[in-house]
């Protein structure tokens, strides 16, 4: 922490962490959604029960 810093200040580390966490979560969601779209295109449904019957 710099010499001039006086409370109250915001700790930058959690912000960085959360930002990164959001990036990760968004990419995961994007991948999940793209998979769902492809499954829907191929199977015509995204209902888990119906998909299970197709196996």
């Amino acid at each position: 922490m710099g010499a001039g810093a006086r409370p109250p200040y915001t700790n930058p580390i959690p912000q960085g962490l959360i930002l990164t966490g959001i990036v990760v979560a968004v990419s995961t969601t994007a991948l999940a959604l793209s998979l769902i779209i492809r499954i829907w295109k191929q199977c015509g449904t995204i209902e888990a029960d119906e998909l299970r019957e197709m196996d």
């Binding site: 995961t28 999940a32 998979l35 492809r38 499954i39 199977c43 197709m54």
Partner: peptide
């Protein structure tokens, strides 16, 4: 890109 592969991938992802 096959159906089973995507299903497996999705399960893995969840």
């Amino acid at each position: 890109g096959e159906r089973t592969a995507e299903m497996a991938g999705f399960k893995y992802l969840i």
